[in-house]
Design a protein around this nucleic acid. Structure first.
Length: 902
RNA sequence: GGGCGCUUAGCUCAGUUGGUCAGAGCGCCUGCCUUACAAGCAGGAGGUCGGUGGUUCGAGCCCACCAGCGCCCACCA
């Protein structure tokens, strides 16, 4: 029978008949089948009018600079796990997807494309450039959305957002104007980080410092009117052309007489003063520093203190200005070489020594940052930072892992004003206009018609755009239509949790917190979960710029989306990076196959027309009639696994949640329970058979639902074939623990059975007995043990491959027997051939030695009076019990060994 | 210069408030195509938890120092 899935690709057959279901899981088919089904049935669409408790995550919008990489797959897989889990728990769940225009990043992408055609953006003009970039945005966004769907993410596509769409611009302008009116945005001339290649200012965060091997050059500056001179040390000799002073420490006795004297700057012969300023460190270099206010942040400040002129010798594109005199027109680098040559030739270069320095590079293009004085817009950050710090201090926002709170505080407490203007073409235009007639500046929400001062209608908008993170910072509320008071905003702000990479705490998280509190008077989210980075197998950070980024689609193609998701989830420990490992992918692909075959096993054994089994039905069954140990046990273990998984997900412990599910499903459900049901299923009738079918259906149904948030495709694909209630596993309920299923006794008894079967298998394996060969087993057992055995008998016979179990009061002396020990009692496997006495004795000796060592450790503890006196009674008692258990076992082993050696 | 973190089986890592925690997965060794699954099944080997000292009846787990390694922030020419 082939069932047709509504809205799904008709070319992919969906077999219901167990005989037709393939033996291996076909991930591609399941993925193609179910995503359209989910989306078209609107399972992921949130309803702001719902009565249910809201649960909302706004997706960190990926940059439209390109396609998604494994880092996106990681953070979004974790988000989808949480979102799907909460949705199944009945929350009114919203995961809002979107993309970021990524101002400088995207502009660079387009500029590189133009460069391939030997074009500069100025060749085509701003309008054309914006048009091309919008076209790029369309295609990049399409690719990203496709990738997100392939990964199975359950986002609400009816609410997809983009940071530069009109409603976002409205929010951006609103915030800008409010901040301006509150005096928190100002415009002015300051020294900023300037990228000469991007020809824009960048923020401190975008200036990335890298250690570089350079030189410290000692240059002699002659004093005016005397033969004396002062030697300064610098790593950037070309900036001497812009020197307007030399500074010494005010308490430096060596230079005290020189303060106030005039120096004649070499090469340019400019007269500059010697000043005293505490910025100078006496121990460094010569204790005398050249001051270049136009090209160094420290010197800039010193220049202001001493009213020094600023001589800009390096221009916006990194070439020397006319102020550099004979060096004008040279690049920074060429100018440095020429200056050094000339200094050397004229005897001013005293010496040079190796020196490691920290050089700032543009985050986007890696060009060396040039500090330049220019007119920019700034956000006054301290008043915004203060409440943002308090929000975390007071616990209104918590970080997971918690130690990132320290990182956050460290940065927030030392924060500088934020340069938000960029001399770029791709971004939100700054909502400021200048009157061409009177020069009046207007900061307004909407484009003004005329100058309120002089009535002139010729107003020019500020050509700059905003730092891309300005709009990202509004994401938790701008996506809901703010500044309008929409119902979405009322329901979904604050968001429930912010999940993102730790590398953008400062860029993004901190700014969202500041902006959220400022605009909404309320924190944007109570919880920040930070995931690690994805590294390659050489532990290097995976990134597009390094060229080692991996497209998730390729990996999905090889292992299936569910295996990729499971691997990422289970590998993301608390706050640690994850090392991308194909071995793990292979392992979890195998897990998917295991799940596939477990369900296939059930379907093969399932009578036609078996109905779905509810929790209430199982509870009634437990209350009404005797149920086999195996059934009691698996219900107990499922319940326990479910309880743990829920607890782990509450704590965002994806690794533990994944491991719990994996271990339960494979090593409890498949390894033991399914094996235990085989003899029962073979009966085809009787109360145990009917109960077992029910428990199997119930257990697999619940297991699939428990696994669904991590492995959505395979679980839906299988669940649809099981007897089930409801349209899709996506909106089925998530399993929850229930005390009615707890059964410690079943656990103990089944552990006893497992111990017994394992003991028999061990004996067989260590004596190289054919695993397939059926054997006769004798069990030396008292009354109680015999009773126990009866309930296990068929299971043990099947699992240990026995054709008979005899209970005896003593082992007969005739015939060959292999002895073993279990918690139930000593047993013997009957052999028709001679056993290797020596091998068997060796084995026993080894066991005995192990036991003796363990007993030794315990008696040492128990003979320690202080342990007995100070340790909690529970611990002492536990140790005593263990001790007697071990001694008992040792006795049996010793007896057997002695008998063997006779 | 500040701050954060890591060092546990060959590899990648778990080890929550100190007392069955010395664990998992992969890899390795042995034997099996046992009618759900060879992307499988059964059995097994392997670590004095970086070093030293301390606190404690008891320490991968707490403290100190030492030795490696990594990351973040920072205006030292």
């Amino acid at each position: 029978m082939i069932r047709q899935i509504p809205n799904s690709d008709a070319n992919i057959p969906f077999y219901m008949d167990p005989d037709q279901i393939p033996k291996t899981y076909d991930a591609r088919a399941a993925e193609q089948r179910w995503y359209p089904f989910w989306e078209e049935n609107r399972f992921f669409v949130a309803d702001p009018d719902s009565e249910a408790e809201p649960f909302c995550i706004v997706m960190p919008p990926p940059n439209i600079t390109g396609s998604l990489h494994m880092g996106h797959a990681l953070t979004n897989s974790l988000q989808d796990v949480i979102i799907r889990w909460r949705r199944m728990q009945g929350f009114n769940t919203l995961w809002l997807p979107g993309t970021d225009h990524a101002g400088i990043g995207t502009q660079n992408v387009i500029e590189r494309q133009l460069a391939e055609k030997n074009l500069h953006r100025k060749d085509i003009g701003r309008e054309k450039f914006e048009q091309i970039t919008w076209e790029w945005k369309q295609s990049a966004e399409q690719t990203i959305h496709y990738q997100l769907r392939k990964l199975g993410y359950s986002c609400d596509w009816t609410r997809v957002a983009f940071t530069m769409e009109p409603r976002m611009s409205r929010a951006v302008n609103e915030v800008f104007v409010r901040l301006y009116e509150d005096g928190l945005i100002y415009r002015g001339e300051y020294i900023v980080n300037w990228c000469p290649r991007c020809t824009t200012a960048v923020s401190d965060l975008e200036a990335q410092h890298q250690p570089e091997q350079g030189k410290l050059y000692y240059i002699r500056y002659p004093l005016e009117g005397s033969g004396e001179s002062v030697t300064v040390a610098t790593t950037r000799p070309e900036t001497m052309l812009g020197d307007t002073a030399v500074a010494v420490h005010p308490e430096d006795e060596r230079y005290a007489p020189l303060v106030g004297k005039i120096i004649r700057l070499p090469l340019l012969s400019r007269k500059i003063p010697i000043i005293a300023d505490t910025l100078v460190q006496r121990e460094f270099g010569t204790g005398a520093v050249k001051i270049t206010p136009a090209h160094d942040p420290n010197d800039y400040q010193a220049g202001l203190r001493h009213q020094l002129p600023q001589v800009q010798v390096i221009g916006e594109t990194g070439t020397m200005t006319v102020a550099a005199g004979p060096y004008a027109g040279l690049s920074r680098e060429a100018a440095r070489r020429r200056v050094l040559e000339d200094l050397r030739a004229q005897g001013f270069l005293v010496r040079e020594e190796a020196h490691t320095l920290s050089v700032a590079h543009c985050q986007r293009c890696n060009t060396v940052i040039e500090p330049l004085v220019s007119t920019q817009w700034f956000v006054k950050i301290a008043p915004l930072a203060q409440p943002a710090i308090e929000a975390v201090e007071s616990g209104h926002i918590r970080f997971i892992p918690a130690n990132y709170e320290k990182v956050y505080f460290e940065w927030m407490r030392n924060i500088h004003d934020w340069c938000i203007s960029r001399q770029l073409w791709w971004g939100h235009r700054i909502p400021a206009w200048y009157c061409e007639a009177c020069g009046r500046m207007l900061v307004t929400r909407n484009t003004p018609a005329r100058c309120p001062q002089c009535g002139n209608e010729n107003l020019l908008q500020d050509p700059d755009v905003l730092d891309t993170w300005f709009s990202s910072g509004l994401w938790p509320f701008s996506t809901f239509g703010w500044p309008d008071q929409t119902s979405e905003l009322a329901v979904f702000y604050p968001n429930s949790v912010m999940m993102t990479g730790f590398d953008i705490i400062f860029f993004w998280v901190a700014r969202m917190i500041m902006m959220g509190i400022y605009c909404m008077k309320e924190v944007p989210f109570p919880l920040v979960f930070l995931n690690g980075l994805v590294r390659n197998e050489q532990k290097q950070k995976m990134s597009k710029s390094k060229g080692n980024a991996v497209d998730p689609l390729e990996i999905i193609d090889q292992y299936g989306a569910d295996a990729v998701r499971f691997t990422l989830a289970v590998m993301s420990g608390a706050g640690t990076d994850i090392v991308f490992s194909t071995d793990r992918m292979i392992g979890y692909r195998a897990f998917a196959n295991k799940i596939w075959n477990a369900v296939r096993f059930l379907l093969i054994n399932l009578p036609d027309q078996t109905p779905a089994v509810s929790r209430e039905e199982i509870k009634r069954m437990l209350a009404a009639s005797p149920v086999s140990i195996a059934n009691l046990w698996i219900l107990h273990r499922l319940n326990s696994a479910v309880r743990q998984v829920n607890a782990y997900l509450e704590k965002f412990r994806f690794d533990e949640a994944g491991n719990t599910l994996y271990h339960f499903f494979w090593h409890e459900l498949c390894d033991w329970y399914l094996e235990l049901t085989k003899p029962v299923l073979a009966q085809k009738q009787g109360p145990d058979y009917h109960q077992t079918v029910k428990v199997l259906v119930y257990t697999l149904d619940n297991s699939l639902r428990a696994l669904h948030p991590v492995m959505p495709f395979i679980t839906e694909d299988l669940w649809q074939r099981l007897p089930h209630q409801g349209q899709s596993i996506c909106i089925a309920s998530y399993p929850a623990a229930d005390k009615a299923f707890e059964n410690q006794k079943a656990e103990e008894e089944l552990n006893e059975l497992i111990d017994f079967v394992t003991a028999v298998r061990t004996v067989r394996s260590e004596n190289n007995l054919d695993p397939a060969r059926k054997m006769v087993l004798e069990l030396l057992a008292g009354k109680e043990s015999r009773q126990r055995l009866e309930s296990y008998r068929p299971a043990i016979m099947a699992l240990a491959r026995l054709n008979e179990i005899r209970t005896v009061d003593a082992f007969a002396e005739n015939g060959n027997r292999l002895k073993g020990f279990s918690e139930i009692g000593p047993f013997a496997l009957l052999l028709d051939s001679t056993i290797d006495v020596k091998t068997e004795a060796e084995r026993l000796k080894k066991e005995i030695q192990k036991l003796e060592e363990e007993i030794e450790r315990h008696s040492a503890r128990l003979s320690n009076e202080e342990f007995l006196r100070k340790a909690p009674p529970k611990v002492v008692e536990g140790a005593r019990e263990k001790q007697s258990e071990l001694s008992e076992k040792l006795k049996k082993f010793t007896v057997e060994l002695r008998r063997l050696e006779q």
